[in-house]
Design a protein around this nucleic acid. Structure first.
Lengths: 113, 113
DNA sequence: TCTATATGCATAATTTTCTTATGTATGTAA
DNA sequence: TTACATACATAAGAAAATTATGCATATAGA
């Protein structure tokens, strides 16, 4: 199911940080495609959401960038800093906790028992 | 873990609708306390978030209200309409889908297998 | 008595974070 | 020449929260 009403709110940064953690370095467009693949089209990160978010993570010192040119196209790669790795660890704990709480509140504990 | 950075964004309405579905009718303050109990203090719904959200659900025809006075205090009870029940069903499917996708993206599938 | 805390509702100002629309640029396929 | 894919970016607007404040009743404590 496509995420229309966007419960995505609040978890975008966590997703971005984790994608970079998993893949070492990625460029923006690449992240949108990979997320679309993994979620079978359910989650489509839009440019208007992803680029400002990546810029903010850089401004906050959690990411660093470098550009590469591939077939006449510039790719801006992002990678985690040490602070980014640390922040990701926090955000993952938070996400795990949040998901557990949400499942409790909504009676969505399919695979517990 | 307390939800500080609030990934709560986007799921508040779903939580409100489901609490009312589970409990028949509730007043605002009661919902905040029940959510706090269920999540062991992790999720604390603030008045600034919950009341405007409840008002919007009423405006959208998903909830109806009536007031009762208990020990000199007015309680404004909310209950689901038929449209509210239907919308809850949609939102629950969405939430389930979203949680599954988020767990995939963040490699948080502890109890699968 | 004054203060804090709990119960109960509400709104205003602000901030965060999205969506939607738009713009630039290259390359390919219909 | 139109559409689509790749690749970046920003601006305007909307949505939905946070934070602060206000009113009102009641109780407990210093």
């Amino acid at each position: 199911m496509a995420i229309s009403s966007s419960m995505l709110k609040g978890s975008l940064q966590t997703i971005l940080l984790n994608m970079l953690h998993e893949n070492g370095k990625m460029y923006g467009y690449e992240i949108t495609q990979k997320v679309k693949d993994i979620t079978k089209g359910d989650i489509k990160l839009t440019e208007g959401a992803i680029y400002p978010s990546l810029h903010k993570l850089v401004a906050d010192g959690l990411l660093v960038t470098h550009t590469e040119t591939y077939e006449n196209r510039v790719r801006k790669y992002y990678a985690l800093t040490a602070a980014g790795e640390a922040e990701l660890a926090n955000k993952l704990k938070e996400a795990e906790s949040f998901i557990g709480n949400l499942q409790m509140l909504l009676n969505l504990k399919p695979n517990l028992s």
